[in-house]
Design a protein around this nucleic acid. Structure first.
Lengths: 211, 211
DNA sequence: AAGCAGTTTAAACAGATGTTTAAACTACCG
DNA sequence: CGGTAGTTTAAACATCTGTTTAAACTGCTT
């Protein structure tokens, strides 16, 4: 395995667990068993390494997500919200075949990017992968045209929060499910819990503005 | 204003914006206009300062939350989920009178505690304020007894994620609402968007386990 | 005025951080 | 074989981190 990939693998794991700020280059390079200077040699800086870790996943996810969302919207009959959100499941779970623990690692990284260094993830997604968001918004609008653009905006942000936050701590949740309820679930079990919740949330009755 | 309070105010603001790891004692003490050593003199360590910042809010919130939740559950008729979640609104908004930007600051701090140093918030809430959580779980159970304990666990975690994550970035969301939709909303406007969403999410139809 | 507990101050501490340097090593090509 | 581009290495760099120290200062009581 190349030095570059050894670094990416170690960084991905440590970033997911301890966050970007909480992970030092020395931790990364010693876990990857490469020299400290290798990060700066191959990636230029720590910031560029973070981008590289995120891009490796987004480049896998982006085309698959586009495909499943198109499949749903190209049909003549309008999709249900459950179908729209389920369109994320297959691409996300595929990350587990792309890399071990790929799904939860990626979702954890998303959460870190949102909270660690403010605005980084927003910049990263909107500038590097603008199609993903617009496709998604369009799909939700087709499924639920009664919502105004403003309401779609709010509910998608709430959904993003639910998913990212939950997945960031999915490891802990899986442990609790085992110890408290004696249930062995994995990441797809978590997703099964999430989808009806967010679908119902997005489909919630609209509150009159002057109530 | 006492040195102790100057430190608490500066720390609260910086912690909320940049996280616990992302804020140094030198930033805090220079913004508070006190000597660097003052933190260790008055609080002992940075970790104790973090606890003190959180406790200042929790000590205000905890009794009010207990009161509003009790009000709902003591009635003979069972509460609705909207009522249960609305019980959080008044205590949370009261933090704005307790301190300027108190509500959003506190909710941002909650989000930081959840993601910054893993497990800290969980330890903090369960050991220092166990009543808050159990009261809440009981209220949800009364409002929606069809849910199993396991389902309540999942949906409350999803709800916590939604609320904390959204409120952490509520500042950015308020800005977007203004620029993209020309709507001037404040923190209570955000809460108004959140409540129907999470109430619908918790009340979502239960998925058969062998589907 | 003297003493004293509580507080503030500047300076230093040891350790960790991201980054850079220059020398050493490696493999391939002429 | 010699040379050269790409890579790895150990060491050092400057800067930042939380914490500690000992001296100075404060307001109060005896």
């Amino acid at each position: 395995m190349s030095t570059k990939n050894k670094i990416l693998d170690a960084a991905e794991h440590l970033f997911a667990v301890n966050g970007f700020n909480g992970t030092s280059l020395r931790e990364i390079t010693s876990q990857a068993e490469v020299n400290l200077a290798a990060v700066n040699y191959h990636f230029g800086s720590k910031k560029e390494l973070i981008k590289a870790v995120m891009s490796r996943y987004m480049n896998e996810l982006s085309p698959r997500l586009e495909k499943t969302l198109k499949q749903i919207c190209d049909d003549d009959k309008k999709p249900t919200l459950i179908e729209v959100f389920s369109a994320f499941v297959e691409p996300l779970l595929w990350l587990n075949q792309f890399k071990e623990n790929g799904t939860s690692n990626f979702l954890q990284l998303l959460g870190r990017g949102y909270t660690d260094s403010q605005g980084f993830l927003r910049w990263f997604l909107t500038t590097q992968y603008p199609g993903v968001i617009s496709n998604f918004v369009e799909a939700v609008y087709k499924a639920y045209p009664e919502l105004t653009a403003e309401e779609v905006f709010w509910r998608l942000h709430l959904t993003m929060g639910t998913v990212i936050f939950t997945m960031s701590s999915s490891g802990a949740l899986i442990d609790i499910a085992k110890s408290d309820f004696d249930k062995n679930i994995d990441i797809s079990g978590v997703i099964q819990q999430v989808i009806p919740y967010i679908a119902a949330g997005v489909a919630a009755p609209i509150i009159p503005s002057n109530a």
